[in-house]
Design a protein around this nucleic acid. Sequence first.
DNA 1: TGTCTCACG
DNA 2: ACGTACGTGAGACAA
Length: 882
Amino acid sequence: MSKLILVDGNSIAYRAFYALPLLTNSSGIHTNAVYGFAMMLMKILEEEKPTHMLVAFDAGKTTFRHESYQEYKGTRQKTPGELAEQIPLVKELLDVFQIPAYEKENYEADDIIGTLAKASGSQGVETLIVSGDKDLLQLVDEHVRLLLTRKGVTETESYDIPAIKEKYGLTPAQIIDLKGLMGDSSDNIPGIPGVGEKTALKLLAKFPTVEEVIAHVDELPGKKLQEKVREHQEQALLSKKLATIYTEVPLDFGLDHLQLPERDTERIVEFFKKMEFKTLLSRVHKQDHAEKGEAVKNEVDVREVASLSGLEEMVDVFNAGSLALFIETSEDNPHHADIVGLAISDGQTQWYLPWEVAEQSDAVRGWLADEERDKLVYDMKKTQIVLANKGIIAAGLTFDVLLAAYLLDPSESQLELSDIVSRYGNEPIPADEDVYGKGAKRKAITGETLARHLAAKAKAIHHVTPVLKQELAKLDLDQLLFELEMPLASVLAEMERQGVFIDQARLEELGVELKQSLDRLEQEIYELAGVTFNINSPKQLGEILFDKLGLPVLKKTKTGYSTSADVLEKLAPQHEIVDKILHYRQVGKLYSTYIEGLKKEIGADGKIHTRFNQTVTATGRLSSTEPNLQNIPIRMEEGRRIRQVFIPSEPGWHILAADYSQIELRVLAHISEDEQLQKAFKEDKDIHTQTAMDVFGVAEDEVTPLMRRQAKAVNFGIVYGISGFGLARGLDIPQKEAREFIDRYFETFPGVKRYMDSIVERARKDGFVTTLSGRRRYLPAINAKSFGERSFAERTAMNTPIQGTAADIIKLAMVKLAQAMNERKLASRMLLQVHDELIFEVPEAELEEMKELVVAVMEDALPLSVPLSVDVNSGKTWYEAK
DNA sequence: TGTCTCACG
DNA sequence: ACGTACGTGAGACAA
């Protein structure tokens, strides 16, 4: 079976150039477009496995389109020099991959692709077009799909005929009619002024082509629209013509000419080396192995220590200096896991110690617990937990590869050790998935395979550590690692191990109550609907509400009707079933996630041990899993009662909860240096009321509840990186009004406005933003061409320093608190963190001391130019600590 | 496995 | 005209 891939070369190069920061290699050449292009190429080759391929480029300045329309592409800005100089390199890239690049005078890449796609499609050859340009949707047919870049270069969306129908309600042929009506500013195709995508789609739903729209101009809705269509009908027809891809370009070659020869890995490697594409180099090697059915080579030298006597020689090793340690566990969750074995590396030699052997050795235990003997690890929190479960207090863990890699790029989700070592240019090691298999095929490994795999990891930890240290120093992230994240890992390990005690009787009770309520609501809904159906299925629910009961469709999702709460709330007045459904959803969520879900997680000790993940969020916050204890209900009373099941693990103790008040807005006041906002906090005003007073220009007693609610929404919006659209949605008001609120806010708080502008500017210049303690987040999309991607990056640039600094502050408070509690020899225990609050269990006798201590440490954790304020409460349950 | 929905800060 | 509020995790459904 043949499979042809046609790539729109200019479009992908552009995409790559704007999506990636302007990388430069050591000889000063810009390489970002080439890099992005190569990423895309490798991904496609790997995933689609084409047999034939061609990359088309635009040739010259003018095409046959300019004959009918001089201004074609007239608004297009000149290609930036940094991109133009990379085009020959892109062609060289294609050459080493032995993929034909083609261009033809007087035609655009689109036309070449169109001609080939039509020819191959008609022969029934499966054809895939890759581009960032929606225009090419018109080429889709039964055998031709379009892969449209969505975000960056490698994230794509595949379009076939049904997908186009779904998204636009059009056939592929109608795409040119769409362009004819709405135009295309990037190609300077005029269309009909005042007609955008929305209007155009509405018209095409009624009249399938531009010609039909013109013919039925009298039937169009609205006098103004009719006029516009009449006045610009010639222009619309010309636009359609310009948007039509020409599929009869004379080509002097056929499909067989495009067959891909076997890959020449050596040439590719040589080219990537020249370009200094380290990550891609390791991927080529990997793909190469995969193709030959081999795994990444594992040539590690390992000695398996199979008996206690064999451990004697280890004593010298333990005394020798920094050793890398990797502990393999029976499962991912350290609270349930058993230790399988230990791999140790001094950088040259590796030792593997099965746990049955290691646990009997005092030398091993002593080494693990000795603060003076350095151990380099991957995931120190997990290491500490599994060892603590065996009665060993791990000490001397001086470097964590996982935390280091996270700080170097917190957006990176691939943080497995094998990913990290490849990323930082070390010799690759096999990925866990390649060794253990995945999903149902996952299997345990034993014997030498196991020993070698773990040994390779320990060795890799040893080798990658100096590289990571150097990178951290370069970006000034060492302090953050050594003084914040690593100490915090130990604090979190202790919190997780401690766990939260659960009142199981109360949990049962609430469960029975909710189940009854759920059953009753279910019956009432069936009665009102006249049939039984699955209320939890958005599909079936949509059919009942919108088809059977005929409620108006206010919003659609890409798979059908939207039945989300905000839609249902608007429909509630129209039918009494809607409120029942909303209530059913609410109770159903409580029952399945919080009753059944929590029950499953209670251990033999009657406690829940969540895991705080320290390397997930892009902002520096923690996250919580298995179960997530950071989203226990509080907003609605019915759900809030779930908090009654979280109780102290010792009789007579109390739950203490301390939360920062408005920490994000205080952080904003600090970093923006806005005097007005700082004043409000220095005078300890209710910030939403104060905002309402300032923005609406009224006195305190004139602030109505509505005004305060709106001011609150504006404050939220500010923290999220404001947009008129977003605020309009949050407040359910017209966008125009929302924009007026924002304008007035910025007039009142000009420092905030200056901050928002300057942080976006900085992000554009540097490609990243930072928090107060120097944590950084890269924003490659900040210079993207697409409005959507770029705006998203801009909002992120505004939000991340705020959210991230707040995260820094509470993390620092946790480390300092743990230390203070230790020094004072308090029995109280820190149990949970929920972004801006900390939960403890506290003996009666320590209650007052703890309240004072917690408030003091949290408020002084990281002094800002405005005071931080902490509220503290206690009670017999988490519910009561409010 | 992806999508939708909804719980939290 | 463009088209989203920032950051998460989990359960249910439908392929």
